[in-house]
Design a protein around this nucleic acid. Structure first.
Lengths: 413, 413
DNA sequence: ACGGGTTAAATCACGCCGTGAGTTGACCCT
DNA sequence: AGGGTCAACTCACGGCGTGATTTAACCCGT
């Protein structure tokens, strides 16, 4: 019943505030005049809304641009120091917590290895809370200025799970042994800040779309190529979730019906051929006791020898990843595909041509011709950045409401 | 610049009209009171908007429901005879044109076989225009009451193609030899009615979502299993198009890297294993000279013999289709998957259990558990029905504007 | 120093919107 | 005939975006 959506005149104002705030945030400092031109609002409304935003302190004037003959236009920007954001990356080997200002400039970060306890939930929760306190203390930032904590996790993030009450966010992460973990509720015991939990691939996608190789695209897919393989699908400019927020599980699509067993239990998954864990394991020649990262670097090094097993593995991985990307092109018809993640960035320069060729071979030629395949441009910490972008996105969508801070709420992405 | 969207107070009214019209159309006759309850609008607005709709003749009163003690509520419905719709299915073997009233009751239909000229564009255009005149004449319906002509075609439908001017819809159909066919412009020479052109799988999807097995779902995939294999992806209640309207090309996703050659030129496509054309060709035992439909029926009959080649082909097709559906589940996370198309409806009762099993084997268990896989419930003429639904959808979205009739416009879906 | 030209930004009357309380209308039962 | 009940209409109110008009802030030529 009673579907939401713009319904009363008041919602119009919220939409206008949100639109202006977004333009000011992403298109740098703008004058009221330019703001009117790109937003389509009339000068009267611009004056009113900007006046409100100035009064609320969300926006500030920052210099002016000279003119020849007329009144100079004063520039406006979102107040960078108004509020802060926290991003958390629960990764394969570590938990990273970073504090940002509103312009997403990193003010402090805390890296904590996951040691022997692995992904034991209590341990992870403790590391997140510890890191949170640490970055806040080190910078002296007041908790009340933090808009929220965005958290990227390795698993499917579901909302409205019947078992969870109150903080209804639940995480399913088969590869790390998480089964219906009520992460929101567990963290809630240690902090009052609003929590935004989403899959790590999706936070990476958010970062690349806003600040990286995906900028400007309305339909795109960002592939997280790390230990495993995940993806973030962007449709019409927004992250696509599906009915239970598990859309984009690229790593477990089929490349061979009845193929190599995957750590998820099925056979022939993409991840079983392309994921860093699978590659290093299949190679078998990594120096014993080294980390997965070092192992993959060694594999890349060994592959410089033509006809070696390592070279063959990489050739095969490129073909399979290209074929999977071809499927993405056929099914989603994106204008851009971005390959990120630490393994993607490490292997990308070598594999990209072969990946592009395989995608061309296997995709329908018409949509393939309109799709660019590129590497991510933000480096391995993009997951943390994207996580911090989650509360920012909410902030901008809501038209700059600061009241959410007191909400004690938790939500998906 | 100047992005669209609800911006002025006037757009609110358009949205309210549209919402009320939709509720009245799909939730049958409703009283003003119920309308307010399910739409969330206040009683005052309901009175205003319904008054407008009544004055415009879009809505009419139809009886009332008695009450015990109070004023009886009068029921409202969309005037069924107010306008008419035309649906066209450019199929594998024939062109079907049907005329509907606003309630999508079929008033007349014209089936014309595609004879020897095959899919020669001029021939198809002629058949469409002939069929259109025929159904209008036979029923005596005035052209001016036709809201538009929806056309489902076997190929990718693109808008804003630089080569086409004015009517900018262009169709690419590799399997029927169409390359950048300006179908909109060609038809424009023979009719002034608004044209709505989309891929046949997408019009089938529209029909199943509105009136068939997809009803009520917000995220779903409708698979068109005919000579080839296509799909219509519905996200958040709307058909998903992608950046150049080619999303959902399921038939040419990979099931075997480097497998059986497909009629599209690539290797290992799903369609090369599952499509009716491929199945009949691989079987090879169809009585010579029979149609594809008869051939597939014969194959189904032969497959009753266990361990026969036919049975093995169907077993394999079910597994591959199930695997492809598993990929759809992983990537789109829909709440429902509907299998339609003439081949799907013919083979479905036999294959569905095996398809479901394969999907369970190959998909991530968590989203799989929340996805229902079902057969379409509308029969083989659903493509035509869905095509007629395209102008209807536009009509409802616009809040019941009849002015589009005079617009001479053409558009995708 | 000063006034005319030019452009940015603020102001304001106007028409329109949805809300929700109050009113009218139509029916029931006693 | 009269009171109760509920649907539907009416209307004052606060709020919105628009666009013409006014005010503010700067340039340049004299």
């Amino acid at each position: 019943m009673a579907e939401k959506g713009r319904r009363t005149v008041r919602d119009l104002r919220r939409g206008s505030r949100s639109a202006l705030l977004r333009h000011l945030y992403f298109e740098g400092p703008l004058s009221r005049h330019e703001l009117g031109r790109i937003s389509g609002l009339s000068s009267g409304s611009i004056s009113n809304v900007v006046g409100e935003l100035l009064a609320d302190g969300l926006v500030e004037e920052c210099g002016s641009v000279e003119s020849d003959g007329g009144r100079p236009r004063t520039l406006l920007r979102v107040t960078p120091g108004l509020a802060h954001l926290v991003g958390v990356d629960v990764g394969e080997t570590q938990v990273r917590v970073a504090l940002f200002d509103l312009a997403l400039t990193e003010l402090a970060a805390s890296d904590q290895p996951l040691s022997d306890c692995g992904h034991d939930v209590g341990h992870v929760v403790e590391l997140i809370l510890t890191g949170l306190s640490e970055v806040l203390e080190r910078t002296g930032v007041d908790r009340s200025t933090v808009l929220g904590v965005g958290i990227g996790v390795p698993g499917i993030v579901e909302q409205d799970h019947p078992e969870a009450d109150g903080d209804t966010v639940v995480v399913h992460g088969p590869t790390v042994g998480w089964d219906a973990v009520p992460l929101g509720r567990l963290l809630r015991a240690g902090t009052d800040l609003p929590l935004y939990i989403d899959n790590g691939a999706k936070t990476l996608g958010q970062a690349e779309m806003w600040f990286g190789a995906g900028r400007g695209a309305r339909n795109a897919v960002v592939v997280l190529f790390g230990s495993g393989v995940g993806a973030c699908v962007i449709t019409d400019g927004a992250r696509f979730r599906g009915s239970t927020s598990s859309a984009g599980e690229l790593g477990h699509t089929r490349v061979h019906v009845g193929g190599r067993p995957c750590r998820c239990g099925a056979r022939g998954c993409l991840e079983a051929y392309v994921g860093a864990e699978a590659l290093v394991a299949r190679w078998g020649d990594a120096p014993p006791g080294t980390s997965e990262k070092a192992g993959l670097a060694a594999l890349l090094d060994a592959a410089r020898q033509p006809h070696s097993k390592a070279a063959e593995l990489l050739r095969e991985a490129a073909e399979y990843l290209g074929a999977a990307i071809a499927d993405l092109i056929n099914l989603f018809n994106p204008e851009r595909i971005v390959i990120g993640g630490w393994a993607g960035l490490l292997l990308g320069p070598r594999l990209l041509p072969a990946i592009r060729d395989a995608a061309t071979d296997y995709a329908f030629s018409f949509p393939r011709a309109k799709t660019a395949i590129e590497l991510g441009s933000l480096g391995p910490d993009a997951v943390t950045l994207g996580a911090a972008a989650l509360p920012l996105s909410h902030f901008l969508d809501s038209g700059g409401s600061l009241s959410s801070r007191t909400g004690r709420h938790t939500q998906v992405g």
